[in-house]
Design a protein around this nucleic acid. Structure first.
Lengths: 201, 201, 201, 201
DNA sequence: ACCTAACCGAGACGGTACGTCTTGTCTTGCC
DNA sequence: GGCAAGACAAGACGTACCGTCTCGGTTAGGT
């Protein structure tokens, strides 16, 4: 990930020229988020983001390969992507904890809008899709994988429940609700999932 | 669904003027499907559909409210939306049968592409989203609901499993695989789902 | 010049589709002229012309190959390119008449601005330059050529004065004054030219 | 022209700090000339000049007020602007000598390209236009004025030929040929001009 | 030997315009 | 009145330059 190649000597020589403006970066992420919520993703253009942020279009194209990547960074800014997963003592409790976290995220209408937009963009732009999967979707799956591993060593994981399938169910239900059946992420749903996946059969 | 208003008398009086061209209709649906598969949904425009179909743009706008609706009709043409659901004797068998049907649909790359496109359009255009939900998504849920009802009267439905939640899980996993984690719809996945939802606790 | 190829039968079959909007055409030419005078040619962009004319950019690109061609048509609209040249009885009088006409044209600040812009564009865009030469510059030379021919048959043309060289002098002085030494086109200048070129040696 | 203000004492006090780089200055002029010839003036940008010269854009903006001024200096570098005008014995001979010099200049395709570019820029940027007139065009007129004055005192100047009008004709024809009717500057043209302006009537 | 000032290259910045593409609407004349 | 063709106003696309600003790094007096 780090460009170690060019720092063969101790201190990496800073590149010449003016440095990237942090102000612009923040204004762009803020404008993108605001516009997605305000107008809906379909109406958000790079042109409008630039204008709203008071920034030249080139400044966006210079730093992000696509509109989706701007939103992905905006999301990362808002919600730490890699959540901590303290041991709650049992698989059921761990799972419930993860669901509560995820539901909070997906239940915040601002973030929900952002997540929908990202999934849409992933379909429209396959290259972005790959980045979205790697940087976001797979990380969430791995987080759940940690819980499953912990449960397995603890011994309270239902037999025949693989990490992969558990992830399919958990995230499948969440994304389906987000995209297809816009209903609130309530406690009842979490109860159902915990009951279904937590049963020691 | 049909506009019954215009047939107030017994026999609908045929309107004057040229009748809708079935040739054009078919050419448009065919062109739309082909283009989605060929170029990906992002590159499909009404302009290109019209050109490929050898049709004026107006003819599309006259009969369909949006690009998504063209695709929705194309999908309906390809795969009968309301599948028959013969009684297979048990909840597990019924479920497995439904999964097999759904997996066949979603596993056909041409249809998968179409489904993805429809879900994308549903996010981008809320009005179409409503139609897509009503005409497609909810019908699939109801189909599963029939199986659940049958199981409940038969008495082999796991307690605490509601029709709503079952649908969330089944379709959640399918759509998630379709949109987020492009992996094949294999027998193993179906096994897992049947095991999970079919258990009599 | 005329596209005779497509009218092999008696009546040219009209092309299908909506016809070109005369309103738009006029609004564009008007806007272009106004802007050149208002802002100077350097600040005139196709974007601004379109906006001022209340017209889409595409409508300009559809009908004119370049910004220069818009102005060339605007000029043709304002000043009939092919002036009538009545016989004034003598070479001197004919020449004076032509100079008066040309000076009136070049002395109108609105047209002067337009002419300058066209000559600039001819330098910047060689393809337009060729059109400008053929459609405007050469026509003016030919108009003068008619006078020279008439003088030659009349017998009052100074010996050794060729049509080509006469044109170089007449239009050279006019364009030089227009572009390089912005001074008014006064009667004194016309007198000088007539004296110089009219002398029977 | 020189900023005398800062040398109020006898010897201008040398400013501290790094001195202007002669290497950069030359590289810029060279790059500008080369690019004008290579790509045509329309395609020459300050960005490209800087890149070709291996120089920062700021270095150009620091020393020249506009792109035109860079070219004007490049021209001055190539062709001494103030030509010597030895007395050739007669008005006709003096005139012919000046025409030969000018034709050589304007006939060199590299310089012709440069001259065209300068005249274009003079139209686009009025402030540069004023400098171009003062530093180049008027100097040429004055050079011709010297010849006219000499002829007048010598007594072989055609009556009624003013210095101003002679300049209009000579430079008018040259610039017109350069900009409007791209034909070579041949001996025949010079003959015609000398005959026309040299005649003692 | 420092200090300060001006220059240098590189390159990011807010903007404007480019020429192309698509959207949804609006004519046209044929069927 | 449907249909293919295609012009229309609108506006986004991604790129190129504009002229300015900001970096770290020279290069020169002046002290």
């Amino acid at each position: 990930m780090s460009t170690a190649a060019e720092s063969d000597s101790e201190a990496a020589r800073p590149k010449p020229g003016r440095r990237r403006s942090e102000d612009s970066r923040e204004a762009i992420l803020q404008a993108a988020t605001t516009l997605v919520v305000e107008l809906g993703y379909a109406a958000v253009s790079i042109e409008k983001i630039a204008q709203r942020a008071g920034v030249g279009k080139q400044t966006i194209y210079r730093w992000w390969p696509s509109k989706g990547d701007v939103l992905l960074e905006a999301l990362a800014e808002k919600a730490s992507v890699y959540v901590p997963l303290p041991d709650e003592g049992s698989w059921s409790a761990d799972l419930r904890r993860m669901l509560d976290d995820s539901f909070t995220l997906a239940g915040t209408s601002q973030l929900a809008e952002l997540l929908r937009a990202l999934m849409v963009e992933a379909q429209l732009d396959p290259a972005f899709g790959a980045r979205f999967r790697a940087d976001f979707l797979e990380r969430r799956r791995e987080a759940l994988g940690v819980l499953v591993d912990r449960a397995r060593s603890r011994g309270d994981l239902p037999p025949e429940l693989t990490a992969e399938f558990a992830a399919d169910v958990v995230f499948g239900v969440i994304w389906y609700r987000l995209l297809a059946i816009p209903r609130p992420f309530d406690r009842e749903l979490a109860d159902h999932i915990v009951t279904l996946l937590g049963a020691r059969a």
